Simulated assay, not measured.
Amino acid sequence: MNDSMDDRARLGLPGELCTCGRQAVWVFTTRFGLVGSCGINDGGNDVGPCPFCSSPRKHFNALGTPERCPQYRLRPVTGGGR
């Protein structure tokens, strides 16, 4: 086993996303299930729409700290069923 990983983390696979919408570098097992991390702690560093729910702005708590979207999915559903 790699010293930088344990049984709660693994490398992100192509198409797995961080909570900010970027490609995940690491995927962690959390109480929310599998959650991706890009390793950049800026919450996406923009005020554009949420990549998961299309809210006009990303999600922040009362202190202004970026939060995970309630509709976050490690691998977003693609194709739209059409």
Results as ranks from 00 to 15, higher is better:
1 M>P: 07
2 N>V: 07
3 D>Q: 12
3 D>V: 09
4 S>P: 06
4 S>F: 15
5 M>V: 07
5 M>L: 15
6 D>Q: 06
6 D>Y: 03
6 D>G: 13
7 D>I: 03
7 D>V: 02
7 D>Y: 04
8 R>L: 12
8 R>M: 11
8 R>T: 13
11 L>N: 09
12 G>M: 09
13 L>I: 03
14 P>M: 13
15 G>H: 04
15 G>K: 05
15 G>S: 09
16 E>M: 14
17 L>Y: 03
18 C>E: 02
19 T>L: 02
19 T>V: 06
20 C>T: 04
21 G>P: 01
21 G>Y: 00
22 R>T: 05
22 R>D: 14
23 Q>P: 04
24 A>W: 05
24 A>L: 12
24 A>R: 08
25 V>A: 12
25 V>T: 10
25 V>W: 06
25 V>G: 07
27 V>W: 04
27 V>H: 05
27 V>R: 04
28 F>P: 01
29 T>V: 09
30 T>G: 05
34 L>S: 06
35 V>T: 07
36 G>C: 03
37 S>R: 05
38 C>D: 11
38 C>N: 08
38 C>F: 07
39 G>K: 10
39 G>Q: 08
42 D>S: 15
43 G>A: 11
44 G>L: 15
46 D>C: 15
46 D>G: 12
47 V>T: 09
47 V>P: 00
48 G>F: 08
48 G>Q: 09
49 P>K: 15
50 C>E: 00
50 C>P: 08
52 F>I: 01
52 F>Q: 00
53 C>H: 02
53 C>A: 06
53 C>I: 07
54 S>E: 06
55 S>Y: 01
55 S>Q: 02
56 P>Q: 01
59 H>M: 05
59 H>T: 04
60 F>K: 07
61 N>F: 00
62 A>T: 07
62 A>I: 07
65 T>N: 11
66 P>D: 10
66 P>A: 10
67 E>C: 14
68 R>V: 02
68 R>F: 01
69 C>W: 01
69 C>L: 02
70 P>M: 03
71 Q>V: 13
73 R>H: 12
73 R>S: 08
73 R>G: 02
75 R>M: 14
76 P>I: 04
77 V>R: 11
77 V>I: 14
77 V>H: 08
78 T>V: 10
80 G>Q: 07
80 G>T: 07
81 G>W: 01
82 R>G: 14
82 R>L: 14
